[in-house]
Simulated scan of single mutants.
Amino acid sequence: MPQIAQLTADNWYLASQLFWLLVVFAGIYLVIGRGMLPKIEATVDARDRKVADDLAAAKAAHAAADGLEESYRQQSDASRVAAQKAVAEAKDKAAKDAEKRLAKVDAELGDKLAAAEADVAAARKSAMAEIESVAAEAAGDLVAKLSGVKVGAADAKAAVKAVLHG
């Protein structure tokens, strides 16, 4: 290869190639190192700042969401307490209403029971009076049939009363 032969045969070509190698590398350094690299670093720094700002915004949004969640929980708890209080008040009111109605019905039943007991007592008294008169007649008839003696109605009633009440 002629390129390799030139390097070993003559030092002038070697020095020329080394010079141009240094010139090319210096050009590449100047173009990339001084021109492109600062732009790339600026872009990377801007991206890092953007990422940091986005993370800070996300943390702030997370904190705001936590605050909203806590507020929601407090409102939910307050609503639950208010609902339980309303239910308890409704139960108490219903119980009081039921007690009032029960007392009213109980009083009505007590009145009806007293009236029924009075009716039963009157019927018993009437029945006892009838039984006494029937028993007095029957006793008078029995004494008349058995002994042939006629007993007066007043005496028969007195004897029946003595036996029944005595």
Rank of each mutant, 00 (worst) to 15 (best):
D141G: 06
A61G: 01
R34D: 03
L37K: 06
A86K: 13
G148S: 06
K85C: 06
A88Y: 07
R80M: 12
R124T: 14
A42L: 07
L113V: 09
S71R: 11
V44W: 00
A127P: 02
A153V: 09
D54T: 05
V81C: 06
E132M: 10
I131Q: 12
K112D: 03
A57S: 07
A64V: 03
Q74S: 06
A153S: 10
G110E: 15
M128S: 11
A83E: 14
K91R: 15
A122C: 03
D106N: 15
A83N: 12
D119I: 01
D66N: 02
E137P: 02
A86C: 05
Y72L: 12
D92L: 15
E70F: 01
V151A: 07
T43H: 04
K104A: 14
V151M: 09
M36N: 00
I32P: 02
G110A: 15
D106M: 14
K39C: 04
D54R: 04
K150A: 14
D48H: 01
D66I: 02
D119E: 15
A58R: 07
L109K: 15
A116N: 10
K39R: 13
E70K: 10
L113K: 13
E117I: 04
Q75L: 13
D53E: 12
L30M: 08
K96D: 10
I32A: 01
D66Y: 02
V87F: 12
I32R: 00
Q74Y: 02
A58G: 05
P38N: 04
E41P: 00
K91N: 10
I28G: 03
S126E: 15
E70V: 05
E99W: 10
A154S: 15
K125Q: 13
K39N: 06
V81Y: 12
K150C: 04
K85F: 08
A127G: 12
V81G: 07
D141K: 14
A115I: 02
R73Y: 09
K104P: 02
A135I: 03
A115D: 06
G35Y: 02
E132W: 02
G148W: 04
K150I: 10
L102F: 14
R124E: 14
G148A: 05
A121E: 09
K112Q: 11
D45G: 03
S71N: 08
D53Y: 06
G140C: 05
S71I: 03
E99S: 13
A139S: 11
D106T: 15
R73M: 12
S133L: 08
A123V: 08
G148V: 05
V31E: 00
V149K: 13
Q84G: 07
V51I: 11
L142Q: 09
R49N: 10
K59H: 00
E132R: 13
R47C: 00
V31H: 00
R73G: 06
A107I: 08
K91L: 11
K112N: 07
Q75N: 11
V31P: 00
L55W: 03
K93C: 06
V44T: 00
S71T: 06
D77G: 04
L109W: 13
D111H: 11
A94D: 11
